[in-house]
Design a protein around this nucleic acid. Sequence first.
DNA 1: AGGGTTGTGCCGTGAAGCGGCACGCTGTAT
DNA 2: ATACAGCGTGCCGCTTCACGGCACAACCCT
Lengths: 254, 254
Amino acid sequence: MQNVLNALRALEEVAVRQPIGVADLARAMQLPKSSVQRTLVTLREAGWIRPTGSVPTRWVVTTKALHVGRHATDELGLRDIALPVMEELRRRTDETIHLAVREGGNVVLVERLETSQPVRIILPLGQNLIMHASANGKAVLAADPPEAAERYMAHGLRDFTDTTITDPVRLRAELAVTRERGWATNSGEWRPDVSAVAAAVIGEGGLPVASISVNVPTSRMSDEAGPVYGALVSEAAKRISTALGRAHEESTGR
Amino acid sequence: MQNVLNALRALEEVAVRQPIGVADLARAMQLPKSSVQRTLVTLREAGWIRPTGSVPTRWVVTTKALHVGRHATDELGLRDIALPVMEELRRRTDETIHLAVREGGNVVLVERLETSQPVRIILPLGQNLIMHASANGKAVLAADPPEAAERYMAHGLRDFTDTTITDPVRLRAELAVTRERGWATNSGEWRPDVSAVAAAVIGEGGLPVASISVNVPTSRMSDEAGPVYGALVSEAAKRISTALGRAHEESTGR
DNA sequence: AGGGTTGTGCCGTGAAGCGGCACGCTGTAT
DNA sequence: ATACAGCGTGCCGCTTCACGGCACAACCCT
C-alpha cells in the first residue's frame, strides 16, 4: 500500500511546511506533481487538510489529527489516572507539571498543567523530549534495563547547551544516581532556562511506560527546591504506577 | 484513492475503539478482514499505530497524530500570538483560559491554560465545542454573517442541560446581545457546572477565525464576575485580532 | 474433545492509481 | 509590450498493486 504511505508522508510534510502548494510539496517529496495533487485532494476529502482559500492554493492541516491524537494515552486510562495526581502535585509546588509517555525510543509530552507564576516557556503537546537531555527522558532511561540505555547511547549524544551530558560514562553515572534516589534531574541541559525533576511511571511489565515531571525556570530552581520537588514527584509517580496496576488487573479480570 | 480513505478511516476507528483487534475492527468498518489487516500493517509501518504486544494482538494509536495536530494553529502563527495574551488573561482572572479555532461548522479547542484553583474543568485538546452551547461557539456565531448562523440553526439545536438554548428565536436574540456588548456567555448550557465568557478573534477577511474564553465553574460565576471577565476577554480578543492582522500584512509583503 | 473465533498469510483477478503531458493563468524579467 | 517561467489543475492509457475470498494454526469457552 505504497500510496497510503505516501499520503501519510504528505500529511506530515504539509503539517511541517504549511502553508504549502502542490509544486513545493512535490519537490520536497520527490514525487510527480500530479500524484501529489491527487493525494492532497484525497486528504482533503478525508478532512485532514484544507486549502486556505487563497490563490494560488495553499494547504494546511485541520484539527483532525488532534482528535485522533488525544486518544494516544487512552490505552490504560493513563490520562484519567494521572490527572488528579498531577493536579495535587501542582497544588503543592505551583510549578508546571508534565506527563510524557514512552514511544519507541522517544518520550513524548502528552499532558500539561501550568504554574500560575509568570511562565517562560510553554511546550506544545506532542513535543518530542530528548532522552538524555530532559528529566523525563532520563527518568525513563534509568528505569529501563541497562541494555536499552546502552543501545540509546550507541547513537551518540547530541549536545544542546553547555550542561548537556554528552559523555556516555557520565550519563551512566547519572543514571545510577537517578536509580538510587528515585528521581531524575535536568539543569538546563536542553534549553538553558528550563530545569526539572522527574520520576518514571512503571507499567505492569515492570518497564517504564510514562514519566511525570516538575518543570521550573532555572532561575527558580534552588538547591533546596530540587530534593523537595524530587521527593514529591517520585511519590506521585509511584501512586500513578500502583493505580495503573490496579486498573489493569480489573480490566484483565481479577 | 479509496484505500487511503479507508486507511484514514481505520486510523480514526482505532483511536476511538482502542485497544482493538483486526476482527472487531473489520466488523465495525464493514470491510473484509484481510483488507483491514493489510491496512493496519501499513499504518504501523508509517508509525501511526502500534500493536500492544499482547496476544491476541490489539492495536492502539501512537502520538504521531499529536505531532501533526500541534501544527493545526500554525497557519498565521495564531498560537504564538495568542499565548502571551492568554497568559496575561489568566494572571488577571486566575481562571482557565481556552483558545478554540473555527473549523468548518465547528469550533475546536486547541490550547488551554488552567486556573490554579482547586475546582476546575479540564477539557482535552481537540475537543469539539458545540456552537450553540458554548461561549466560544456563540462568540464565533455572533461574529459570523447572519446567513451562517441561520444555516447552522437549520440543523436543529440539540439540548444538553435545562439551560441550553434550543429555540432559534431566543438564540437570535442572544446573538444580537452578544454582538452589542462584545462578548458571549455560557451559563451551564453544555454541562451544568461549566460557565464561561468568550470573544471572537477576527481574521483579515473580517470573519471570525478563532475565539478565546474564560471558563469558570458555575458555582464561582457570580453576577459581578461576568461583566468583568467579559470586558477582559473582549479586550484580549481584540489585541489578538490586530496582532494577527499585522503579522499577516508582514508575511504578504507590506 | 469440539465448535467457534481469533490473527495471519497466500494468490489470481480486475479495478484504480500512476505519472507523463497539456492547458490556462499569474507574476516577473526582458 | 512581450516572452517566459512558474504555478495549480485536469485528462487518459498503461500497468501495477490492492482487493477479498479462502485456508490454516492457535486459542478460548463451553
